[in-house]
Design a protein around this nucleic acid. Structure first.
Lengths: 164, 164
DNA sequence: CTAGTTAGTCTAAAAACTAGACTTTGTCGA
DNA sequence: TCGACAAAGTCTAGTTTTTAGACTAACTAG
């Protein structure tokens, strides 16, 4: 299968991967959440080839993750900002940051601190169950295929054993 | 900059991207969490080119995300399993799944359901503050650069404005 | 002896990525 | 008016990665 056919699958991870699963894309989004907006600034911070950056920004715009906003005329110039859909990627970037902090930070600790404004603490956000408020990890979640419904396509890439 | 130099940065997202930010990698890991272990099964489910799959599995093994475990002799054959470090990627895959479910699932709802075993509900895990237990998103977190410490390298890719 | 299984490797062609020069449309200072 | 600078890209040619599909190795079952 070619990479651009990946989003034809009905799996949510596959469709998300079509947007996120590329060199540089996660880094570009990370910089977006840190407030970077201008082409030259992405380029300078990431040292990404200009051609690749242009392609990635265009792709993120096409997928409605970023939008181009004009910030001056004469000459017209545009900056890139997160859409609501893009901002909804915050948990993804945040959990990646947690993982990197755990396995790759130096002895001084994480290079970037995150403060939870409402309570004032520096935190690493954690994944929890919205029903019972306790922690969630690979061990206490069981995936299963959605029960078949006439109107919907079959699930082709479900769990190996459909454990109840 | 070349892609394989990306992990030289001291940013946690950059170092994580060196492992995760590649075509197919997120999908392979997703299948790992669904119980897939054998080469042929990855290949059949993902329709990934065999050469690419072999490269990706080797890379994930080198980064200690997967390990190869012998499951038979004559001939020797191996399967791929998540290490503890790999299992710690569950929040990343889970938040990607949430995002994909929100923006890309069909009218029948998410194709894969996740049950939180301790409480028995089908859920989408959410990101919360471990201090105050309330929800976390892009709007209520402020990133700032770690205060400089003699023993540690400077933070080069911190937030644009170091908002308190 | 033949076909099948599993986990790969090999090869050649196609696609994507990279470095660095170049373009476009303006501003500013001398 | 002239040259330097800024910002957001595009263009080009060379390198690297990805892809499809055939092939290999080491067995088992019939």
């Amino acid at each position: 299968m070619k990479w651009d056919e990946i989003s034809n699958q009905q799996c949510s991870v596959a469709r998300s991967s079509a947007v996120l699963g590329d060199r540089w894309t996660l880094l570009i989004l990370s910089d977006c959440f840190l407030g970077v907006r201008k082409f030259a600034e992405f380029q300078g911070r990431l040292e990404i080839p200009r051609t690749t950056l242009a392609n990635r920004l265009q792709k993120l715009e096409q997928h409605d993750v970023l939008y181009r906003k004009q910030y001056q005329t004469n000459p017209d110039r545009f900056e890139y900002r997160l859409t609501n859909k893009g901002r909804d990627l915050y948990p993804v970037l945040s959990t990646i940051l947690n993982w990197g902090d755990k396995y790759y930070s130096d002895e001084a600790g994480p290079p970037i601190l995150r403060r939870h404004v409402p309570c004032g603490h520096d935190i690493q956000p954690v994944l929890q169950c919205p029903e019972c408020n306790s922690g969630v990890d690979a061990h206490n979640i069981r995936a299963r295929t959605r029960p078949p419904i006439d109107s919907a396509a079959d699930v082709k890439r479900g769990p190996v054993s459909n454990r109840s």
